[in-house]
Simulated scan of single mutants.
Amino acid sequence: MKIKFRILNYIVLIVLYLLCTELFIKLDEALHVDSVLLTLGAGFFLLNTLNAFITLKLKPILNITIALFIASLSLYSAVQIGAAEFFPNADPYGILTAILSNIILSILFWEIAHQLKTRNKAIQL
């Protein structure tokens, strides 16, 4: 995949993550799930699965596995970073920090997946 397409893909992912985070939280409140992490995880998994099928174009089970791995690892890391209270005065609850770290880590993991795909043709089973 060309670098211009990847950069455009990352910009679209950033916008989608920012817009969908609020949507997923409202969906959690409407469904009375009472577990925002479960709703966010499922929502980001769906976004990542769609992105995997569009950009990676591997076998379906491999796309779904990569999307699940990226969604779960980035959300877990974002929760841990948000709980660390890096900016207690600017973001007292760590919510903005967690959202931004989730976006940054997801983009980082997607770039790792793209690099692995281009460098290792054996991944295309």
Results as ranks from 00 to 15, higher is better:
Thr55Trp: 09
Leu37Asp: 11
Ser106Gln: 14
Val12Phe: 12
Ile11Phe: 07
Leu56Tyr: 07
Ile103Trp: 02
Cys20Ala: 15
Leu46Met: 10
Val33Glu: 00
Thr49Ile: 12
Thr97His: 12
Phe44Lys: 03
Leu62Met: 08
Phe45Asn: 02
Ser72Tyr: 03
Tyr93Gln: 14
Val33Arg: 02
Leu50Ser: 09
Leu68Gln: 03
Ala42Phe: 00
Leu27Pro: 05
Leu8Gly: 11
Thr97Gln: 12
Leu125Lys: 13
Leu18His: 12
Ser72Phe: 06
Tyr76Lys: 00
Phe86Pro: 02
Ala90Asn: 09
Cys20Asn: 12
Leu8Ser: 08
Lys59Thr: 08
Ile61Asp: 04
Ile54Trp: 12
Ala98Pro: 06
Leu56His: 05
Ala52His: 04
Thr65Leu: 01
Phe44Ser: 08
Phe45Ile: 04
Ala67Asp: 02
Asn9Ile: 12
Ile61His: 03
Leu46Gly: 01
Thr39Phe: 04
Thr97Val: 13
Gln124His: 15
Leu58Val: 04
Ser101Asn: 04
Phe24Trp: 00
Phe69Val: 01
Leu125Phe: 15
Thr97Asp: 09
Ile11Lys: 06
Leu62Thr: 08
Leu68Thr: 06
Leu13Thr: 12
Ile11Gly: 06
Ile99Arg: 09
Ile25Thr: 00
Asp28Val: 01
Gln115Ala: 12
Ser74Pro: 11
Leu37Phe: 10
Tyr10Gln: 07
Ala113His: 02
Leu16Pro: 03
Ile11Asn: 04
Ala113Asn: 03
Leu46Lys: 02
Ile99Thr: 12
Lys117Asn: 15
Ile25Gln: 00
Thr118Gln: 13
Ala84Glu: 06
Ile7Arg: 06
Ile14Tyr: 14
Glu85Tyr: 11
Glu22Pro: 05
Ile107Gln: 04
Phe44Gln: 08
Thr97Tyr: 10
Leu75Ile: 10
Phe87Ser: 07
Gly41Asn: 05
Arg119His: 11
Ile123Met: 09
Phe24His: 01
Asn63Ser: 03
Phe45Asp: 01
Met1Pro: 09
Ile3Val: 08
Asp91Trp: 08
Leu19Asn: 07
Lys2Thr: 10
Thr21Glu: 13
Ala90Pro: 07
Lys59Ala: 09
Leu105Pro: 04
Leu50Pro: 02
Leu68Arg: 05
Lys121Tyr: 13
Lys2His: 09
Lys117Phe: 14
Leu46Asn: 02
Leu8Phe: 10
Phe69Pro: 01
